[in-house]
């Protein structure tokens, strides 16, 4: 199946000022594909070029180089946008309208027929949890409610591609869970979702693949599972390892950094299981891991648990993006 979004050597330079023109390179030769049916996270620090990329895809901004295709169409082609639902980050809905009135107008603009609008608007308001607020004007909505209304707006034309810019921004934990559930449902329906977000924990929960942009360039892309898996590293929880055993295995076994207990002492003792200690094991391969286990058992160490170490997406993101450039969301 061809990718829903295809980007090749995409470049964008913004120019401002007439007398002393100032040029800012927002995208510098980015190439990537968003496969059909994926929930794709677009990550990066502020100013990385994420929003610029989305704007180019939707024809809101124009590329200065390279090529972007949306369902095989050029950006800005209304035919491609018929299949897209979009929720911008800082949306400005007409606040003198109620949610159904807003959906009615944006539905018309999305080319949704009268019959479909009258059927889908109540359904969507119910789906995003706004059916109780149909008589209330948007000016009286909280940020979370506006976000839900925006999501309903983006879903109105039953899009094949949903582009969401910070979809859970300002939404309470319950609302975030509900939005996440909707995204999972959409994934199950085979829709493609592109999420541009700073909330890495949210992205980690719903996305199957990610791309990390930094300073206008693509730094990494791939599935979250493959990117966050740390190579052959395990956490071992066991009874204290004798010093001579530890010395013999020092190249592949080391105590985990000591933590501070309530009485102020430094210890590597597991907080959840008193009497047990935690170690980091870095064998060359599976056979090496088994050799370590054999040696420990032989020296009388009782093993409680061995778990592979997996980085959180946040850890991975910080590792990949220069921390000095990272602005906390």
């Amino acid at each position: 199946m061809p990718p829903v979004i295809s980007i090749a050597s995409l470049e964008k330079t913004y120019q401002s000022g007439i007398i002393r023109p100032k040029r800012v390179r927002a995208l510098d030769g980015v190439s990537m594909d968003v496969p059909s049916g994926s929930v794709f996270g677009l990550l990066g620090p502020n100013g990385a070029g994420k929003t610029t990329m989305v704007k180019i895809l939707l024809g809101v901004a124009r590329a200065t180089g390279g090529e972007a295709r949306l369902f095989g169409h050029a950006p800005g082609d209304p035919d491609a946008r018929k299949r897209v639902g979009y929720l911008p980050e800082k949306h400005e809905f007409p606040d003198f309208l109620t949610a159904p009135q807003m959906l009615e107008i944006y539905g018309q603009m999305a080319g949704v027929s009268d019959t479909d609008r009258s059927r889908r608007i109540p359904q969507l308001l119910d789906r995003v949890g706004l059916s109780h607020a149909t008589d209330q004007k948007l000016s009286g909505f909280s940020k979370g409610m506006l976000q839900r209304a925006g999501l309903a707006q983006a879903l109105l034309n039953e899009p094949d591609l949903l582009i969401l810019d910070e979809p859970t921004d300002g939404v309470d934990p319950v609302g975030r869970r509900e939005i996440r559930d909707i995204l999972v449902e959409l994934k199950e329906e085979g829709k493609t979702v592109l999420i541009n977000s700073h909330l890495l924990s949210e992205v980690e929960k719903v996305c199957t693949e990610i791309a990390i942009l930094n300073d206008g360039t693509l730094v990494r892309t791939g599935s979250i599972e493959s990117l966050t898996a740390a190579d052959q590293t395990y956490t071992l929880s066991c009874t204290p390892i004798p010093d001579d055993t530890l010395a013999a295995l020092k190249d592949i076994l080391e105590p985990v950094d000591a933590s501070t207990t309530q009485d102020g002492k430094r210890t590597t003792e597991s907080a959840s299981a008193p009497g047990l200690r935690r170690y980091r094991v870095r064998p060359d391969d599976r056979a090496g891991l088994n050799a370590v286990i054999d040696r420990l058992r032989r020296d009388g160490v009782e093993i409680d648990e061995i778990t592979p170490v997996r980085q959180t997406l946040e850890d991975y993101f910080i590792d990949v993006v220069n921390p000095r450039d990272t602005v906390p969301a």
Binding site: K55, L58, G59, V60, P78, D79, R81, K82, V84, Y86, P88, H91, E92, F93, Y106, M109, A110, G111, Q153, I163
Partner: peptide, 8 residues
């Protein structure tokens, strides 16, 4: 940008 994202 929301309006331009529509098929118009």
């Amino acid at each position: 940008d929301l309006l331009l994202s529509k098929p118009i």
